[in-house]
Design a protein around this nucleic acid. Structure first.
Lengths: 122, 122
DNA sequence: GGTGACCGCTTCGGAAATCGAAACGGGGAG
DNA sequence: CTCCCCGTTTCGATTTCCGAAGCGGTCACC
């Protein structure tokens, strides 16, 4: 349950996700996370730090701990599900070249709607 | 990313989790989810309904769709990780037989810091 | 030495999400 | 009819999040 709460916050999962490839500094990480507010970012970072999911390198960059990497991998099935999910509910034109949605993605309406969103799992 | 947003909301994962054992009505479900606000509950329910993760039975109870069950199972590794995580950072109060804490759970503070709220493992 | 760019991080006012409790109409039991 | 539980909506109060500006610091460059 604690985990559900920790990861149920707005950018926690995203941060975990963006850190998967390697350590990142504060501002770079912020940019990767859709330019989220630095205030909230610091907050999430602190929570994650406290949960020992990430830690800070001597050069002050943030990096996943072994525990953090496990969490990120534990997330994999969910990512795979997300892809299937996207394919199920949004099977039509997956062409959103003109997409300009910022941070907010809404739950898809229904099959047959024309409201594309970003479904890239990177 | 859309999934990260859908599940990044406050009670989404919890609802998914509480529905794992079978269909539940509105108020029962609400009680199970730490008595969350009915307003937010309705909102989450709508989002989940819209995302075709849950659906409503003729007797108006809520139930996971096949897609929803997949999501719940996709969550399994995360749950397993959570247990390991709890054991890693909170190895002393190793008695999680009881559980009735309120809504907010924070990253455990066992090691080093004195963060406020309490966490419970399920 | 001065300037500008990036850095980690904090502060603050306003917007949005969440809460909490009350209330509606309806169903079933006593 | 009354009492209790139900699903659901509404509304004011609180919490969280956002967005932008600012602080002190480093480093390259001129």
């Amino acid at each position: 349950m604690a985990a559900l709460d920790l990861f149920g916050r707005r950018w926690s999962l995203r941060i975990l996700w963006e850190l998967r490839a390697g350590p990142l500094g504060f501002r770079p990480l912020q940019k990767r996370c859709d330019d989220m507010s630095s205030s909230v970012m610091r907050q999430r970072l602190t929570e994650l730090l406290d949960a020992q999911v990430i830690h800070q390198l001597p050069d002050s960059r943030y990096e996943l701990t072994p525990l953090g990497h496990e969490a990120r991998h534990a997330l994999d099935p969910l990512v795979r599900w997300a892809e299937r999910w996207a394919a199920t509910i949004d099977p039509q034109g997956a062409d959103h070249t003109d997409d300009q949605s910022a941070g907010r993605v809404s739950p898809p309406d229904t099959v047959g709607d024309g409201a594309p969103e970003r479904g890239s799992a990177d």
